[in-house]
Structures are given as structure tokens and as C-alpha cells.
Simulated assay, not measured.
Amino acid sequence: IDGVEGQPGRCFAVVTKFHHSFGDPSFFAPVWDALYAADLPPVEADPQPASRLSVTLRELLRLPLWPVMLVADAKSSARAQRHLGAALAESGHRPPPVERCSITAPMGLGVDADAAFFPLDRLRTAARAAGVSANDLILGAIGSAIAEHFDDVGPDVTAFIAVSTREVNPEPRNSVAGGMVRVADDTPWPDRVRRIHRDVRTERTLLSAPEATSSPPRAPGFAYAWFLQRNQRSRQAHGMVAAHTRISSPGRPDITDWRLCGAQPVSRFVVVAPGASCGLCHAVTALGDTVAISAFVDPAQVPDLGGYLDTLRRVIEELCTPHQEDRSFA
């Protein structure tokens, strides 16, 4: 790669792709460490792995038990969901479903991606002035940029926030729950970002409860595919969706000891697969002393990705400038 700012000569990039069905970003962190480590860790292999025949016979013997297990799991899951729904209703902060607009149609086959970069120290200074975290400030900035850039969205903007529950339930390879947070409304700044701060923490607490982290019913894959398609058709018929956008903060391992092709890497950039529920998704990643906010869009829904990122840069510049010397974002 030629022309990387601040780096002499040619640079290189290494792209690693994982399917989300295999695990969440936190699950893959030690896998990344092992892949890029100079010394490979020892591998403990089963000296007598099970043969395909033995696995097939075992599953055939278990086949009569599947209806019983499915009914038991479905009852347990329904009970847990009722408790979680009651807790969310009691909290009173979760926003209702939103009307469909120019960015809420399911993601198509084509995806455009770009990123904006911001100094972490400036974000932290502005966040401390408001009494929140830098992540809360970024959530509020994304909400403001969406409400300002898209004519049919706003002033209320609801985001799907990925919440890791791996510390509570480390057994599943995917330990991620979805929180719903209103990231833009008529509330003036900084009261709005303080409300976002409270809502995010409330969502994290509720989604880390035992009933929220319980395992789903053990059903065949086609059953889940049918359920998701049916749910999507129902939402399309009613013209309502859960959120305007998706925002993730993927976990990342330490790159201090990494050596790629004999060189110390400058940064590690996480890209997450966009969800299929909306046409505008974000990933927020720390790159040393820089924060990268990447956007993944359906070009049919967001044809002007560069213009949207320019709006986001200006919003964050306006939030940070009163708290530090003027310094534009490249």
C-alpha cells in the first residue's frame, strides 16, 4: 500500500476473515494472538478423535430425544424472555420501534465502507467535560450526524448497541446481546449524552442478567432461518423496525508484540460484518491514540457515504473544539 500518511515507503496490510457463526470478536481475540505470534503455542490434539461414523450413529440414537429437548428448551427460553421483557418494561428507558426510513431497509448484496479517524485525547477531554465516557460521546455524535444528514430521520435516532456478555456467560462462542438506546432526541447537549450514558449502562446491566444470557432452544438451523424470515416479513408488513442503525465496538488484542513480515504493525483495524436489519452500520475501534469510526452502508440506501462521514467529522469537531485547542480531523 503506497501513500500511507506518516509512514515512509510502502506499507502492507493483512486481512483476516472470520465467519460470525463461529464466534464473536471477543472469542476470536486469542485466535488472532496465536495467528500473529512469533512463537506458536502448543496445540493439544485429541489422540483419538471421533470418527464420522461414530458421531453419525450417536446423533441418530439421540434423534428420538430431540422433540423432548426442544420443548424443554422452548419453555425455558420463553420463561427467561418474559422475565427480561418485564425488567426492560420496568426500567422504562428502552425506546419503542421506529418507522421505516431511508436507512432502515435490510442490507443488500452491495456494501460500501469507509472510515473517519479522530484523536482519542480530544474525545476523552470533551467526554470528561460532560461527565461521560468517550464511547458515550461517540454514540451521541453518531446520532446527531444521522439526524442531521438524513432528511427523513430525526430528531429521534435509535441505535442497536452490541453488548458483550462473555464475562457473564463465557461458554457460548457468541456471547453478544443487543441493546436499544436512543442516541439522538430533542434534549440539549450535554444532558443528552448523560442520558445516553445512563441508558447504555442500564442496557448492559439488564442484558447481563441470567435470564438474558440463557441459551436459546436447541433447534435445527432451518427452524431459526424460518423464524427470522417470518419476523422480518412481519416487521415489513407493520412498517416498523427496531432501530435506525447498528453500532459495535469489537474487542481487540494487544498488538505490542506483533511482528508482521518482520515489521512492527502501526495499528490493528477491526471490521465487523454489517447486520442485515438496516442499511447503515458502524464499528468503533481504538487504534492506539486514534479512534476509527467505520461505516458500512448499502449504497442503494446511502449513496453519499463520504458526505455522511463529513457530517460526522463536523459534529465531533463542534463537540470537541470548546474543550481543547482547534485541531481539524484529517
Rank of each mutant, 00 (worst) to 15 (best):
Glu5Phe: 09
Pro8Leu: 09
Arg10Phe: 01
Val15Leu: 14
Gly23Thr: 14
Pro25Gln: 02
Phe28Trp: 10
Ala29Asp: 15
Trp32Ile: 15
Ala34Thr: 13
Leu35Lys: 02
Ala38Asp: 15
Ala38His: 13
Pro41Cys: 08
Pro47Asp: 03
Pro49Cys: 00
Ala74Ile: 11
Lys75Val: 15
His83Tyr: 08
His83Gln: 13
Ala86Arg: 12
Ala89Trp: 07
Glu90Leu: 07
Ser91Cys: 08
Arg94Leu: 13
Pro97Arg: 09
Arg100Val: 04
Cys101Val: 06
Ala105Thr: 14
Leu109Thr: 14
Asp114Ser: 07
Ala116Thr: 12
Pro119Cys: 11
Pro119Arg: 10
Asp121Ile: 12
Arg122Phe: 05
Arg124Pro: 03
Thr125Ile: 14
Arg128Thr: 07
Ala129Met: 00
Val132Leu: 04
Asn135Phe: 01
Asp136Trp: 02
Ile142Pro: 05
Asp151Thr: 13
Val153His: 00
Gly154Tyr: 05
Ile161Ser: 00
Asn169Leu: 06
Asn169Ile: 02
Pro170Met: 05
Ala177Cys: 14
Ala184Gln: 06
Asp185Leu: 04
Asp186Gln: 12
Val193Glu: 00
Arg194Ser: 04
His197Tyr: 07
His197Trp: 06
Thr205Arg: 10
Thr205Lys: 04
Pro217Cys: 07
Phe222Asn: 08
Ala223Cys: 11
Ala223Val: 12
Ala225Asp: 11
Trp226Lys: 09
Gln232Ser: 11
Gln232Trp: 02
Val241Asp: 04
Arg259His: 11
Ala263Trp: 10
Arg268Asp: 14
Phe269Ala: 08
Ala276Ile: 10
Ala286Trp: 05
Asp289Ile: 14
Asp298Ala: 08
Pro299Gln: 06
Val302Gln: 08
Val302Met: 08
Ile316Asp: 00
Glu318Pro: 00
Gln324Thr: 15
Gln324Val: 12
